[in-house]
């Protein structure tokens, strides 16, 4: 990739509970662009975001964000770096005991000492950006799934971060909510010049908005490039994933023993 990579992963190895999740992943995420990281469920896409955010440490390898090696950062520096990141969790992760307004105001109150009327203005601006200025007095329990994610989005951009990470933003959304989110992600990127990282397994939506995509399977990057490059990627596995074929290099059957012995046929299947 070009030299303006905002995030660089180099030979990242990570394993949890004895299972190797990443086995030497290297990738660059360019500044100011939308990068989609795709892959089958359970390949550790969310784990990748947590590695970037410093919530997890890799067994080896480097995770460089904005020129700083995240795993080597001290606690204080890590928290400083995180003020420059926003993350949209799959569940939204709104604070259930605070109203919509207070949720969006939370990072401002903690990290800035702005006067109350300034906070109010900023919060309403951010809510306006996601189209929910009218919902400011609702409690998170009163919101629909799509609205929850939009409020969470407003909260993650409250501090005007340089990087925003979306964890499965489209999962479980109806088509309209999905359309709204696609539009929001694209608008935020173009209007604020955010570096966006999108983790998803919704191929069409992701490919429609990203500038650059990368597919992970079995702990390795199996293909990367622009959406067009990927569509004509020679690898069979990439094609299987992009086109959603049930069988192929990723087998339909989970690895199992001999079927005959499981079904009680001593001589094997006849």
């Amino acid at each position: 990739m070009d030299s303006s990579a905002f995030i660089t992963l180099k030979d990242v190895v990570f394993s949890r509970a004895g299972r190797r999740i990443f086995d030497g992943v290297s990738l660059d995420i360019p500044k100011g662009r939308i990068t989609a990281i795709m892959g089958p469920s359970g390949t550790g896409k969310t784990t990748l975001l947590r590695l970037i955010g410093g919530q997890l440490r890799p067994d080896s390898g480097r995770v460089v964000v904005a020129g700083q090696n995240v795993p080597a950062l001290k606690r204080r520096d890590l928290y400083h770096l995180r003020e420059r990141m926003g993350m949209l969790f799959q569940s939204g992760a709104l604070f259930t005991d605070l109203s919509v307004f207070e949720n969006v105001a939370f990072p401002l109150r903690v990290h800035t000492s702005l006067p109350e009327d300034m906070i109010r203005d900023v919060v309403l601006m951010k809510l306006e950006a996601v189209g929910l200025r009218g919902a400011r007095d609702l409690m998170p329990a009163e919101l629909s799934g799509g609205m929850t994610r939009r409020v969470a989005l407003a909260r993650s951009i409250a501090l005007d971060p340089e990087l925003i990470m979306y964890d499965e933003p489209f999962a479980g959304q109806d088509p309209i909510a999905m359309g709204v989110l696609v539009k929001l992600i694209r608008d935020l990127n173009s209007s604020m010049g955010l570096t966006s990282v999108l983790v998803s397994h919704d191929v069409p939506e992701s490919l429609s908005i990203c500038h650059y995509a990368c597919i992970i399977a079995d702990g390795k990057v199996i293909g990367q490039g622009t959406p067009d490059e990927l569509q004509s990627h020679p690898s069979e596995r990439v094609q299987q994933f992009l086109n959603g074929k049930p069988d192929g290099p990723v087998p339909f059957h989970y690895p199992a023993g001999d079927a005959g012995s499981d079904f009680g046929l001593a001589g094997g299947l006849v």
Partner: peptide
């Protein structure tokens, strides 16, 4: 519900 995680990611 990932509230603790999201707080961590907000630098809190």
């Amino acid at each position: 519900t990932e509230q603790l995680s999201s707080m961590e990611m907000m630098g809190v």
